[in-house]
């Protein structure tokens, strides 16, 4: 197993791939979360009927495979002559994908804040904004955070699909090395280990927070 043609240079190449994975994930999750919070608040405030068009739109991102979304997004930007590089296209599609899931998480978080608590705040003279800021946000964050961490990790893993657009992320970097070195198992195991090392501690943190902040305890 240690008898390998893999050089430090190649490990660096894998590292660059991992950095690309993290960069795509970071941008997409950041943008997706902001959109998710906005959509989630709209969804909660507007009620199920008025927010139907928005929900239908977001539902598409949860009902169509990400691979198809990426290819379609890329074809669409090419037809519209936007000339986006694959990185931008990937981030835009992944952000919407993230937002679709995040909206539900945020809505669930807001809904979990007892109405009585919010009324109490409002009767102390708080405005809607203050109520959202000082009462709903802290409580909803507690409820939503474990699910949000799960979502972030999900997006990190799903971001492997951007290789389809030619972006050299972790999995694609491994495939390139496999092509050159013909040691599929060894290189794929390293690739899997890198994903695991990134994902596992954060997943554990999410599990811990979930237990710690669980409203039932």
């Amino acid at each position: 197993m240690l008898d390998t043609a893999l050089t430090w240079n190649d490990l660096l190449f894998l590292g660059q791939g991992a950095a690309m994975t993290l960069a795509v994930t970071a941008v997409s999750v950041a943008a997706g979360t902001i959109m998710g919070i906005i959509f989630g608040v709209i969804r909660f405030q507007a009620g199920p009927i008025w927010s139907m068009p928005l929900m239908f739109f977001l539902d598409i991102f949860r009902s169509v495979p990400l691979l198809i979304q990426l290819v379609l997004g890329n074809a669409l930007q090419s037809i519209a002559k936007l000339g986006w590089p694959p990185f931008t296209t990937s981030c835009v599609v992944l952000s919407l994908y993230t937002a679709a899931y995040c909206t539900e998480i945020v809505r669930g978080g807001i809904a979990s804040v007892p109405v009585t608590t919010r009324r109490a705040g409002r009767s102390l003279g708080m405005t809607w904004g203050q109520d959202m800021r000082y009462i709903v946000a802290p409580l909803a964050t507690r409820v939503s955070l474990p699910a949000w961490i799960g979502l972030t990790l999900g997006v990190m893993k799903d971001s492997a699909l951007v290789l389809w657009l030619g972006l050299i992320e972790l999995l694609r970097a491994s495939q390139i090395l496999v092509t050159r070195l013909q040691e599929p198992l060894f290189i794929l195991l390293i690739c899997g280990a890198i994903y695991f090392i990134i994902s596992f501690p954060i997943a554990r943190l999410g599990g811990y927070l979930e237990r710690r902040w669980s409203p039932h305890d």
């Binding site: 290819v71 890329n74 074809a75 930007q77 090419s78 037809i79 519209a80 002559k81 936007l82 000339g83 986006w84 694959p86 290789l163 389809w164 657009l165 030619g166």
Partner: peptide, 12 residues
């Protein structure tokens, strides 16, 4: 990649 040739052209 092979499938990406045309979208890359179409999008300029």
């Amino acid at each position: 990649p092979f499938p990406e040739r045309i979208p890359a052209l179409m999008s300029g």
